[in-house]
C-alpha cells in the first residue's frame, strides 16, 4: 500500500499540459468540455463501433482515455448500448460481415445522433478499399457527420473530430 501511495504522489497529475506542454491540446480540452456543456448540458455518450478496422484506430481511441488526454474527465463517456449514445465513433472500412450490425446500431441510436468516422479507412476505405468483403468508407453504409483522416489519427485528432461534430450539431 505504501508503494502504491508513493507512486501516486511521485507521479502527480500528468494530464496535459504538464509534463509535455502542448497548448493546442489544452485549448482543445477546454473547448471540448465547454462545447459539450453548451450543447448537451451533460456528459456526451459515445458508442464505439469497430466495423472492420485493423485495430490500429482502436489503439488511439484507447489512448484518449490515458491520463495525458483523459477524455472521460472532459465529460465524455463510452456507453455500452447504442440506446444511450449521442454519438457513434466508427472505425475501419465497413466489412460486409459487419454491415448489418453497423446499420442496426445506427438505427438503435436515438435521434439526433452524430456519426464520426475514424481513420483513413473510415474516410475512404483506406488500404482495404471496396471488395466482395468490404463496403469501403463508413459513409457508404450510414450517414457520417465528420470524418477524421489519419492512419491511425492521433488522440488529439480524434478529440478534434468529436468537438467538430458536436459544435456543428443543429440544436
Amino acid at each position: 500500500m505504501y508503494q502504491l501511495l508513493k507512486q501516486i504522489v511521485t507521479t502527480g497529475i500528468v494530464t496535459e499540459p504538464a509534463p509535455h506542454a502542448d497548448s493546442a491540446l489544452r485549448q482543445l480540452e477546454q473547448r471540448l468540455s465547454e462545447t459539450i456543456l453548451k450543447h448537451l448540458g451533460r456528459a456526451l455518450a459515445i458508442r464505439h463501433v469497430d466495423a472492420g478496422s485493423c485495430n490500429g484506430c482502436e489503439l488511439e481511441i484507447h489512448a484518449t482515455n490515458s491520463p495525458y488526454y483523459n477524455l472521460e474527465a472532459l465529460g465524455i463517456k463510452f456507453v455500452a448500448s447504442p440506446r444511450h449514445a449521442d454519438l457513434l465513433l466508427v472505425t475501419g472500412p465497413v466489412s460486409r460481415n459487419m454491415e448489418q450490425a453497423l446499420r442496426r446500431t445506427y438505427d438503435a441510436t436515438p435521434e439526433p445522433k452524430l456519426v464520426v468516422a475514424i481513420g483513413d479507412c473510415g474516410c475512404t476505405g483506406g488500404v482495404f478499399g471496396e471488395s466482395y468483403a468490404s463496403c469501403g468508407r463508413v459513409a457508404n453504409v450510414i450517414p457520417v457527420d465528420v470524418a477524421v483522416p489519419g492512419c491511425p489519427p492521433p488522440p488529439t485528432a480524434i478529440m478534434q473530430g468529436i468537438l467538430t461534430a458536436i459544435s456543428a450539431r443543429r440544436s
Binding site: 478496422s53 485493423c54 475501419g92 466489412s95 460486409r96 460481415n97 482495404f128 471488395s131 468490404s134 492512419c151
Partner: peptide, 29 residues
Amino acid sequence: GYKHKGVEKRFEGMALEEGARLAGRVSGD
C-alpha cells in the same frame, strides 16, 4: 469472421513494394 475484409484477395496482383503497407495493417497492434 466479422472483420473479414478480403485482405488475402487484395494482396493478389500487388507489386512487392506495394504490399508492404497492407501487410503492416493486417493487425495494427
